[in-house]
Simulated scan of single mutants.
Amino acid sequence: MTDERPIRPPSGTVRIAEVDGKRAVLAFAGVLDAHALCELEERLLDQRLRQACVLVLEMSALERIDLSCAYALLRTATGAPEPAALTVRGARRHVLRTLRQAGFDAVATIEE
């Protein structure tokens, strides 16, 4: 008898790659889906990110993001009393498509 369970891609990771008080860089990798949502939301609550004036989302290693994670990013971007200048860098075409579906392009500069 063979194991018929679907193979799930590895969950994504989000790490704070750089913080200098005014600028913060979040680096994304893997697949951000519902399984990674809790970790993403916890990471986005980090006080160092809330203090940054500039927030860069480095997405070159991100394979895929689902709408729930894109909306979590959008809530963070729009929920701060004084939102940081937000830049998305290095995102793949299908990741950008999901971010745009969530309305992310209205609040962020997207570097393609």
Results as ranks from 00 to 15, higher is better:
Pro83Thr: 04
Ala17Leu: 11
Glu82Trp: 01
Ile110Phe: 01
Pro83Val: 04
Arg89Cys: 08
Gly12His: 04
Cys69Trp: 05
Ala34Glu: 04
Val19Ser: 15
Arg100Ala: 15
Leu40Met: 06
Glu111Arg: 08
Leu45Asn: 15
Asp66Tyr: 10
Val25Lys: 00
Arg50Ala: 13
Glu39His: 09
Thr109Glu: 15
Arg8Asp: 07
Arg23Glu: 11
Ala84Glu: 03
Arg50Val: 08
Phe28Asp: 08
Arg97His: 13
Arg5Trp: 10
Leu32Trp: 09
His94Asn: 09
Ala84His: 04
Pro9Asn: 06
Asp33His: 10
Ala24Asn: 02
Asp20Val: 03
Ala17Cys: 04
Leu99Tyr: 01
Thr98Tyr: 03
Leu49Asn: 11
Arg97Thr: 10
Leu26Gly: 07
Leu74His: 10
Leu86Tyr: 00
Glu58Ala: 15
Thr2Arg: 12
Phe104Arg: 04
Asp46Asn: 15
Gln101Phe: 10
Val56Leu: 12
Arg48Asn: 10
Glu111Lys: 03
Val14Met: 13
Pro9Asp: 09
Gln51Glu: 15
Thr109Phe: 00
Arg5Phe: 12
Ala29Met: 02
Ala108Cys: 09
Asp33Trp: 07
Leu74Cys: 06
Cys38Phe: 11
Ala17Gly: 14
Ala91Asp: 05
Ile16Trp: 02
Asp20Glu: 06
Gly90Ala: 10
